[in-house]
């Protein structure tokens, strides 16, 4: 038991640190990519090609003065960013980033934990993400924050439904709720994006809404709401929200990759006859590349599409996505039961 605990602790440390470093570099990637999309240069002064920019940003945020509005509810105002980052970082626990690897004579599963209710765990934690945002909006005691918080909770609750229902299609095909089983089932060409194209699109759109990313970034629509729910935050508390936003984006990319893009599977890699250690490492690399592509996709969409209006957002969520995801379940269930 001791050695297993140690291995798990090491896995958690590595994964959380990789996510945090990826957060820093996706902020950099966002600024550079947006600059290239708009025909600018972007940050290129700190370090070679501006690669040290994230560290400069963190240093700047850490040295800023922490301001709490005088009428704010102080404990909750402090708690809200913590809740946001907690939810963002714990979601990664069930995402498999590889199959198994043999190191020092023991077989290690490349996943922090493989619970057999993995998908429900994901959905439960994403539904908790609302708290951080709602509470920050309310506790700041400012109308812009409150509007931002309420908007974002309404948006997240609306899109959670279609998100959960679109995953049911994947579960029906795989016959398991464990994310590792889902990835193993996507062997060869049988990626779920091929088998579940409608479900993939619904899940993708819902992920954009759940992570509050453009074109669904209404909670922080600056022309109407100043900064949205984090208007009254500064210094490291603001940094935590910023961190949570990008961590959510990275986790969403990892989840999309796992559920629909074959996870760590590279078509027929296991049949190439490579040594097991090379196969395992290649699978981790494939997973990272897929996630990186999804992160790029998130950035690409943000700088290409304009923001939705609030009524358009609600109409899309309830009148288009929800019926579509229910229809997707019905069709998938019929096809699966016919093929059995």
């Amino acid at each position: 038991m001791g050695i297993e605990l140690l291995i798990t602790a090491i896995k958690i440390t590595i994964v959380v640190n990789v996510v945090l470093i990826s957060v820093a570099y996706s902020v950099y990637a966002e600024r550079r990519v947006s600059a290239f999309i708009q025909n600018r240069l972007g940050p290129n002064r700190v370090g070679p090609k501006g690669l040290l920019q994230p560290f400069a940003d963190v240093l700047k945020l850490a040295l800023k003065e922490d301001i709490v509005p005088s009428n704010a509810n102080k404990p909750i105002h402090t708690l809200a960013p913590m809740m946001s980052i907690f939810v963002a970082l714990t979601t990664i626990a069930v995402v498999p980033f590889g199959n198994t690897i043999e190191l020092f004579g023991s077989v290690i599963a490349l996943q922090i934990t493989d619970v057999n209710v993995g998908i429900l765990y994901l959905l439960a934690l994403t539904s908790l993400g609302v708290y951080g945002i709602t509470l920050s909006g309310w506790s700041s005691n400012s109308k812009y924050s409150l509007f931002g918080g309420i908007r974002s909770s309404a948006q997240m609750i609306s899109y959670e439904l279609s998100m959960g229902l679109s995953v049911v299609g994947v579960v029906l095909i795989t016959g398991s709720l464990s994310l590792q089983d889902i990835v193993i089932h996507q062997f060869g060409w049988k990626w779920n994006i091929v088998l579940q194209p409608v479900g993939f699109i619904i899940f993708l759109v819902a992920s954009f809404a759940e992570t509050n990313r453009a074109p669904f970034d209404l909670p922080e629509a600056e022309p109407e709401l100043v900064g949205g729910y984090h208007t009254e935050y500064s210094s490291m508390k603001f940094a935590l929200f910023f961190l949570a936003e990008y961590a959510n984006m990275i986790v969403a990319s990892a989840v999309i990759t796992t559920l629909y893009l074959g996870g760590w599977q590279f078509p027929y890699l296991q049949t190439f006859g490579l040594p097991p250690i090379v196969t395992s490492l290649l699978q981790i690399l494939v997973f990272c590349l897929k996630v990186a592509f999804m992160i790029f996709f998130f950035i690409w969409v943000r700088w290409s599409l304009p923001r939705f209006r609030y009524d358009q957002l609600m109409n899309l969520g309830w009148k288009v996505m929800l019926p579509l995801s229910i229809a997707n379940i019905v069709v998938t269930a019929i096809v699966v039961s016919l093929l059995k």
């Binding site: 209710v117 429900l120 765990y121 959905l123 439960a124 934690l125 539904s127 908790l128 609302v130 708290y131 709602t134 509470l135 309310w138 409150l146 309420i150 909770s153 609750i157």
Partner: peptide, 20 residues
């Protein structure tokens, strides 16, 4: 998981809304 998904995730959010 259902305890968190249903109670903490759904019902309490609505509760919080009403109170706020």
């Amino acid at each position: 998981i259902i305890q968190i998904l249903v109670y903490a995730g759904a019902i309490m959010v609505l509760f919080l809304f009403v109170i706020m």
